[in-house]
């Protein structure tokens, strides 16, 4: 589904990504772990097409298409979803309105008819239940006045409505208490299916107790140093990141 080859990117002249290689197949869940400042969020922003990042070399193929040549919205239509680490507040823009506009834009791109307002609302309410989100949030402005946890929950709710094929979860677990984490993880797990993939970026092994990954990557200094199964995450939890770095330099 996703093939990243030797991806290098910089922001404001500063090299952040230094040759990332990552293959994600449909149905898989990948966890990317690593110390602060390793470039994990840069990777998700580059994949989603944020302007501020310049890709210097490398390729990213998504379902065989050149992802890097696409505009952010085209990537969304193609099925890429980024759950932001810091979701912005957009005053006056209704949460549901945004979703409806987004969903219809995608359907138009796919040659489908516009969703009937009634059907849409019904669907949205069902999805809101998935993440235990109060219906009152639907009519509020996007993230405006939401708590940190509510914002994260709103992100997963949006993911559930938009039904992407590739979900990039950027520290979706941070700032969540244990109950909220369970709810959010529940939403993500329901989303899992044979034709979808998830790449989650996290600091904590804790999340992986709820969303069990197929592959765990250690990300440091702008690239993936080591990959393994979920036992690697447990080992990281015990030993930290330094041994991986050492292994990479000496081995």
């Amino acid at each position: 589904m996703l093939k990243i080859e030797n991806l290098c990117a910089s922001v404001a002249g500063k090299k952040i990504l230094r040759g990332v290689n990552l293959h994600v197949k449909a149905g898989e869940v990948h966890a990317i772990m690593g110390p602060n400042g390793a470039g994990k969020s840069t990777l998700s922003n580059v994949l989603a097409g944020r302007d501020a990042y310049t890709v210097t070399t490398g390729t990213v193929l998504f379902h065989g298409q050149d992802l890097l040549a696409m505009k952010p919205e085209e990537r969304a239509w193609a099925g890429v979803f980024l759950a932001f680490q810091y979701p912005v507040e957009i005053p006056g823009v209704n949460n549901t309105y945004l979703l409806k506009a987004a969903l219809n834009a995608k359907r138009k791109h796919q040659g489908l008819s516009q969703l009937d307002a009634f059907d849409f609302l019904k669907m949205v309410k069902e999805k809101a239940k998935l993440v235990d989100m109060d219906e009152s949030f639907l009519s509020r402005s996007v993230n405006e006045g939401f708590s940190g946890g509510e914002k994260k929950r709103n992100e997963i709710f949006q993911m559930a409505v938009l039904e992407p094929t590739l979900a990039l979860l950027d520290e979706t677990d941070s700032g969540l208490d244990i109950d909220a984490l369970r709810v959010v993880a529940g939403g993500v797990n329901q989303f899992r299916s044979a034709d979808r993939a998830i790449v989650m970026i996290t600091h904590y092994q804790r999340l992986l107790d709820y969303i069990v990954p197929d592959v765990v990557h250690v990300f440091s200094d702008g690239r993936i140093l080591k990959s393994g199964d979920r036992h690697l995450a447990m080992e990281l939890e015990k030993r930290g990141y330094d041994w991986v770095k050492e292994e990479a330099t000496h081995g």
Binding site: P72, R75, A76
Partner: peptide
């Protein structure tokens, strides 16, 4: 960017 990421044109 947020809106574009959600699939709206600029």
């Amino acid at each position: 960017f947020y809106c574009q990421q959600r699939g709206l044109s600029e």
